[in-house]
Design a protein around this nucleic acid. Structure first.
Lengths: 337, 337
DNA sequence: GTGAAAGCGCTAACAC
DNA sequence: GTGTTAGCGCTTTCAC
């Protein structure tokens, strides 16, 4: 197959060590020798065998990132941002898309920690805490978009409860008291955090939680449509709806429109994430902006800081959300309810 | 760090070879020995060092895929589909996002062919033909979404000129004669193929090409917005716009809405790709459906077929587009222009 | 069924 | 400045 360092050494009439030094720009090499080696390198079209090199050096300058669904722009943006910073700091990123399958997640993690990567960025909402704790002992790791009660694990996240609290409070301030809630999928911690925020906002304002108004969803448009179908059947309908993510909010709006209702006329709707589509739909969706880009950047920065200093750095980065008010919500304070 | 095979052998009181055999389910091992080894494996939490293993076996069961922008759902879907098939056939996928930077593209390619992967899937519109030809001699490779005049290279693509021709013809049939065109980035062959289709459609219908109506874009939403800003300044505005991809079409629609115009009232807009958001936005985007999923699947299948048979298989797959008509385009035949 | 020896391609450490 | 030696962790080959 490809030429090895030995072939190059023979071709150039030097030792393999000299070739190695030329390749890695190490030590001083006499100009004459260097030129000879470089010529041989080019002639044989040499490419280093990374497996051999990494076996010796025990590093790869690669960072592995595991995400549940790369075709979801949320994760696309996250990876993009992470990659940019990684590149600036001399690392490349290898991506594994688990498709939400815990087994696939494990496969990538094992490959990555089997010396393919120097560290791992984990965006894996479904893996359980214990597994994460074990992993973090085996390889440097940053946990993204999720918090874990363990101060030794580097983590970058947004408090989803706070975001949900802002969204629901916004609706309450507009006069809504019957507020529907479309939940995210089960087994995803952020789903529950968002519910915590929803409940707390209601309670803080003296509104009783009505379980009828809470419907299960799955973070996709279709479940938003199904949520509409359920909520519309209620004897006492909600006047507002908080969707656990934008896609489900879209689905709700679309289904409402199709059934002849208007948003925000009949229902005020708030989403979560602020994917770029939220600004483009009619009406623009009021939503909680997720600092995705910042999250990706910060994850890499904190991770690499800890890699290089070997010291414990500022491990927890708790980012802040922002409520983006567009036209899908309106006040009903002046109306009789 | 982690335990090695040697540690396990010592722990189990056997030779490294026996451990290796247990790990790889090779040869026959006495049940008693196997159990001993498995216990040691678990106790030491052994993970094989892939660098060492791959160095010997000279294979990795990884496929490397290089894409220009993973936050673009187009590539997200492509990767997703590729990954699914790869997994079914016993391979995993490593993704490198080059961010459109040829240097980064090269970096990933070199890493992949440096024994990190068994083969490469190249979705690399910017790399020049010569480079691809050279690469294909060094490592098995499939070229996706791009054609090259070389029958030895496995390739899966769509004729972009035909797709663009359909899109523009649709607009012409609706009565539009001033049709803006938001181009893709330079140095990307498909950008020019789409322009070829645009120009040909106009000429075939006796409409002169007006360079004023052609603006440069970069396949991202923002450049669609910028395109709107440019086109709106024209003394003779277009009544329709063909965006070289959906994202830029989205950007145009968003900017138009913000400026108080309506789509399709004031502008008919056609995109290219049919990413899933196209169906979800308001109004649904008329677009040229790209057989992305099929392309991703086919790429892997053809590649792996050729890997396993070592024989030349059916190398060229030329896929077909489809025009999806939604509500972002309308006829102006009955109106005075 | 199991083990010992050799070597994959490279670099670290130490000579000279 | 350059070469020699040893060894990274694993599998292949061949012996027993």
């Amino acid at each position: 197959m490809g030429a090895t360092i030995k072939d190059v050494a023979k071709e150039a009439g030097v030792s393999v060590m000299t070739v190695s030094r030329v390749i890695n720009h190490k030590d001083y090499i006499a100009d004459k020798t260097r030129v000879k080696v470089e010529k041989a390198l080019k002639k044989l079209n040499y490419m280093p065998n990374m497996n051999a090199r990494n076996l010796v050096t025990n590093k790869t300058d690669f960072l592995g990132i595991v995400v549940p669904d790369i075709s979801n722009p949320f994760f696309g943006d996250l990876v993009k941002a992470a990659e940019k910073i990684a590149k600036e700091r001399g690392y490349s990123i290898i991506l594994g898309d688990s498709d939400g399958d815990p087994e696939a997640e494990n496969g990538y993690i094992e490959a990555f920690r089997s010396r393919m990567c120097d560290a791992i960025i984990l965006v894996a909402p479904r893996i359980d805490d214990q597994k994460i704790r074990e992993l973090s002992k085996a390889i440097p790791l940053v946990l993204v978009d999720r918090m874990i009660s363990d101060d030794d694990i580097i983590q970058v996240y947004l408090d989803n409860a706070e975001g949900a609290y802002s969204a629901v409070t916004h609706l309450i301030n507009l006069g809504h008291t019957r507020i529907g809630f479309i939940m995210g999928p089960e087994n995803v911690p952020n789903t529950y955090r968002r519910k915590v925020g929803y409940v707390k906002a209601l309670e803080d304002h003296g509104i009783a939680v009505d379980e009828e108004l809470i419907v299960q969803g799955d973070f996709i448009t279709e479940t938003g449509e199904r949520a509409f179908a359920e909520l519309i059947k209620l004897p006492r309908r909600p006047t507002a709806v908080f969707g656990s993510n934008d896609l489900m909010a879209f689905g709700f709006v679309r289904a409402a429109n199709e059934a002849g209702f208007s948003v925000p006329g009949d229902f005020s709707v708030v989403g979560f994430d602020d994917v770029y589509l939220s600004a483009m739909m009619e009406p623009g969706l009021t939503t909680v902006k997720y600092p995705i880009i910042q999250m990706g950047k910060q994850a890499i920065n904190v991770l690499l800081d800890s890699l290089s200093t070997k010291e414990t750095v500022n491990l927890r980065a708790n980012l802040k959300h922002e409520l983006i008010i567009r036209r899908s919500t309106r006040s009903i304070l002046d109306e009789e309810q």
